[in-house]
Design a protein around this nucleic acid. Structure first.
Length: 877
RNA sequence: GGGCACAUAGCUCAGCGGAAGAGCACUCGGCUUACACCCGAGCGGUCGCAGGUUCGAUCCCUGCUGUGCCCA
């Protein structure tokens, strides 16, 4: 057998240096085609579509989490022999991108109107060409195993065709319609927004009570938006409200305008709020619009698209926020302000893109009639065709789909998919399908100027990226997608819409088998990361300093289903340390000739230590598999961390040192076991930390790449409970000896002569050299003089360790330790006695529980006896 | 206003009916030839408060307090 010292040393440097190696490894994987999907062949499909990041953006920590989890799932399935497709791409982000380019041309003193629509859109494409690529670069640094050959963009020709196809189908079936409605309008972005693009916050405002009419023909209304009174067309009260019953059907004069407006009754007025009478402004409030519809009231728009008052009179030309105090002042002058409350905190909607206060606005827009689509989306989850993880979030999904409002899909933008509807002479309307010719412009036909909500095209993502509306081989193979991974915060934005459109476009087949919703990233104190707070961590910074693997492992370790995760730099450092630990442990194994070239010898020829670690390794494989099926990333990461560090490194490698020192067949067998366990753990870790495992695994095995290595399976060999008991006993014995040494102030490296008895009776004979090595003990020499002794109760018996500390023993320290142990044992005994002395317990508790407590009691009694004897011996001695 | 979570060691979180756990932080001792991004040992919790169910409750139920989120 080759001597360890003459083994060829590995070429691995003493520490893992991610920065220099990761990029090269990644490009090698791409070049090898590992990530490219093949729609042919017999492998079962596995498909994840990447939630398309915004083309204007860069990847933040939330993306890093999302990508880590998707990559882990994809890499594992690939190793398991699935045909894996992780579909990348970006969306065109209508409002955001248009804003960016408008800002850019504003620096040249231009507006989009100066350029004209066509030139502006060209300008956006040019911008996309120049800056839109940074996300791909970031994904390469993360190590994302996406199929770059299928990279897609929502504005691509094929995806645009998908948009036009589904629009036409929905239009023809009456599921898309155009109507004048109150919509959410952003006076800064100058476009309609859907309900979910509005964020509500509790803001300080004012509540002003205004008297309309005079004398006994007057009524007081309260409002937070005094300026809208210029557009009031009624006052509404509850039909059962006796206070106002006599006024219903009469009219009052609307101050400042001289208009007479009716007092109407409406069920939806809350008599408890304010005076119980509300002003009704159908053109500027969604609830008032509803009241207006029921009472057939006119709607008077008093603002332009920028929120500037257009009503004639002294307020014309004022911004809505300037008009508010001006209107109040004018009313006060007339003595019509009955009460004012400032600040008055109430909920105010803001544009999710630019934070401008949203103005409800009456306008002509396109809508999707969602009722039948939402019903199907709900049913797919109710039927279990799509499973939501964690299941608690399914309720939130149902609450949404079962109470969904029609979806406003038109946007007054230029960047996006233009609505494929043409308006002709005599009010004719024509929706044009993807393969149809638009009607001739010279006959007076013009296309609708608006574009579609970005989410409209994103909703097609799970199948438009696969080639739909063509029935491509990829669509056939990879639809439905296996799992969708995203944050719970975009359940409504995106997941619901993909469900609706997927079921509709694909003849009732749901887009996903499973949906996994992860939590949000927060800072170390649990606050949301935001630029305003200045607590944003850029994942690229972490990757620069700690490597992509460490960044990924940190995120995976924090990913408990459905709950948010707090991140701090310390976590990343810890993950970096773990990678380094793995690196050095593997290096150590390699330096000692660990190899996968030879199979692990038959179990009966191995040591108990070998059988113990092999058993733990099998258990680890099963546990990791089970946890992956449940999307328990935090737990599976922790299981891998614990196995690697606390069992493999802290114990098995130390035990292996003893076996390697023996030389001969024992050393050779140990090399095979080392090779096996590192092979397995590296493969298990690869989906989480792909780079370091690739470097180590290829060195260890000589294999081509761990990316395409088979996923580990348990050995099928039975575990050896006796060997495991014995190793656990050795762990306890060694720990107790170390504890004693530490109490006595013996330096960790100093060897101490010791005489052990009871080892054989405890069944630990074979592990005796291991104990000596791990506890730094020397065999007793001729001059051995025990100056201290400890007794350690282990599973098979009690081991007595006599130590020659060749000097004074710190009796005080020992007494303290014994007293502490005694107190613990006495507490334990008292607890057991209390239970066993209670007939209700012994009668009603299950027998195994009673037996367990009885056994614990016996151990406590023995401990007390032993420790007391030791203590009294000390005071007598 | 409606709904849903969560309150466990200094921090971030597991555990969710039968002996309180992890990582980080902290204390002490160590360069024990894989690793100081390390090794060894240790300190630290009436599991938010008050009731209830149970032989037994951090775990189940009720109420309260606090925090967060979603929806109006």
């Amino acid at each position: 057998m080759t001597d360890t010292a003459s083994q060829p040393t590995t070429d691995l440097p003493p520490a893992w240096e991610p920065a220099t190696v990761e990029a090269e490894l990644y490009e090698r994987w791409v070049a090898a085609g590992y990530f490219t999907s093949d729609a042919g062949g017999d492998r079962p499909p596995f498909c994840i579509v990447l939630p398309p990041p915004n083309v204007t953006g860069s990847l933040h920590m939330g993306h890093a989490l999302d990508h880590t989890l998707m990559d882990a799932l994809t890499r594992r399935r690939r190793m398991q022999g699935y045909e894996a497709l992780w579909q990348p791409g970006m969306d065109h982000a209508g409002i955001a991108t248009q804003n960016v380019v408008e800002r850019e041309i504003a620096r040249e003193g231009l507006t989009r109107h100066d350029l004209g629509r066509e030139a502006f859109v060209e300008r956006v494409w040019a911008w996309k060409g120049e800056y839109g690529g940074q996300i791909q670069g970031q994904m390469r640094r993360f190590g994302d195993s996406v199929d770059w050959s299928r990279d897609r963009f929502t504005m691509d020709e094929g995806l645009s065709k998908a948009v036009q196809t589904i629009f036409k189908r929905l239009f023809d079936e009456g599921l898309i319609y155009r109507a004048e409605r109150i919509i959410n309008w952003c006076p800064r972005c100058l476009t309609a927004l859907s309900d979910i693009e509005v964020e509500h916050s509790e803001d300080e405002g004012e509540l002003v009570s205004i008297r309309y009419g005079d004398g006994d023909r007057s009524i007081v209304v309260a409002t937070t938006r005094a300026e809208t009174m210029l557009g009031d067309t009624a006052v509404a009260v509850h039909p059962d409200d006796q206070r106002y019953a006599h006024l219903v059907g009469t009219e009052v004069e609307l101050p400042l305008t001289g208009r007479m407006i009716p007092i109407v009754a409406d069920e939806h007025v809350d008599p408890e709020f304010g005076t119980g009478a509300v002003k009704v402004t159908p053109a500027h409030d969604p609830n008032d619009f509803e009241i207006g519809q029921r009472a057939e009231l006119p709607a008077i728009t008093i603002m332009d698209e920028r929120g500037v008052i257009t009503a004639h009179g002294p307020f014309e030309g004022l911004d809505r926020f300037e008009a508010r105090p001006a209107v109040v002042a004018a009313l006060r002058e007339q003595g019509r302000i009955v009460a004012e409350k400032r600040p008055y905190v109430h909920s105010v909607g803001h544009c999710s893109r630019c934070d401008t206060v949203v103005e409800p606005r009456l306008s002509l827009q396109w809508f999707v009639r969602v009722a039948p689509l939402a019903k199907a989306a709900g049913d797919a989850v109710r039927d279990g065709r799509t499973r939501i993880h964690p299941p608690e979030l399914a309720k939130r999904y149902f609450d949404w789909v079962d109470n969904m409002h029609d979806w406003c899909i038109s946007r007054q933008l230029w960047w996006g998919h233009r609505i494929p509807v043409w308006y002709g002479p005599n009010g004719k309307v024509m929706c044009v399908g993807p393969d149809e010719q638009p009607p001739p412009a010279d006959e007076g036909w013009t296309q609708d100027p608006d574009v579609l909500d970005t989410w409209f095209s994103s909703a097609l993502w799970p199948f438009s990226t696969l080639g739909w509306p063509e029935r491509t081989p990829h669509l056939e193979k990879f639809y439905p997608n296996s799992v969708l991974v995203t944050g719970y915060d975009i359940l409504f934005f995106w997941v619901v819409r993909m469900m609706m459109f997927g079921l509709y476009a694909m003849d009732g087949v749901q887009p996903f088998h499973e949906v996994y919703l992860h939590g949000l990233i927060r800072d170390e104190t649990g606050k949301k990361m935001s630029k305003a707070r200045g607590n944003v961590i850029n994942p690229l910074d972490w990757m620069d300093r700690y490597g992509a693997d460490a960044t990924r492992f940190t995120l995976a370790r924090g990913a408990n289903p459905g709950s948010d995760m707090a991140l701090a730099e310390d976590w990343a450092a810890g993950s970096r340390n773990f990678g380094n630990k793995l690196w050095n442990a593997t290096r150590f194994a390699l330096m000692n000739g660990a190899s996968t070239a030879r199979a692990v010898p038959a179990r009966e020829t191995l040591t108990e230590a070998d059988r113990w670690i092999l058993g733990l390794t099998d258990a680890l494989v099963s546990e990791v598999d089970r946890l992956y099926e449940e999307y328990q990333f935090a737990k599976l990461s922790d299981a891998l961390y614990h196995y690697t560090w606390d069992e493999l490194c802290d114990w098995y490698l130390e035990l292996a040192k003893v076996q390697l020192a023996e030389g001969g067949d024992r050393a050779e067998a140990t090399r095979a076991v080392l090779g096996h366990v590192f092979d397995v753990v590296l493969r298990l870790l690869h989906p989480l930390i792909p780079f370091v495992t690739e470097r180590l695994w290829t060195t260890l095995t000589g294999g081509e790449s761990v990316v395409v290595a088979p996923w580990p399976a348990a050995s099928g060999q039975p575990r050896d409970p006796e060997a495991e008991r014995h190793v656990v006993a050795v762990q306890k014995l060694v720990t107790e000896i170390r504890r004693f040494r530490s109490d006595q102030g013996v330096k960790p490296g100093q060897r101490v002569s010791a005489r052990l008895s009871g080892v054989d009776d405890a069944g630990l004979s074979a592990l005796r050299p291991a104990v000596a090595s791990l506890a730094r003990l020397n065999d007793p020499g001729d001059d051995f003089a025990a100056s201290a002794s400890i007794e350690v109760a282990v599973a098979g018996g009690t081991v007595t360790v006599e130590l020659d500390l060749s000097g004074t023993v710190d009796l005080d320290a020992e007494r303290k330790r014994l007293a502490k142990d005694l107190a613990a044992a006495e507490k334990e005994l008292a607890g057991c006695d209390a239970k066993l002395g209670n007939p209700n317990f012994t009668d009603k508790a299950p027998a195994p529980v009673v037996a367990k407590i009885t056994a614990r009691r016996e151990i406590a009694v023995a401990d007390i006896e032993r420790i007391s004897a030791r203590l009294s011996a000390m005071s007598n001695g």
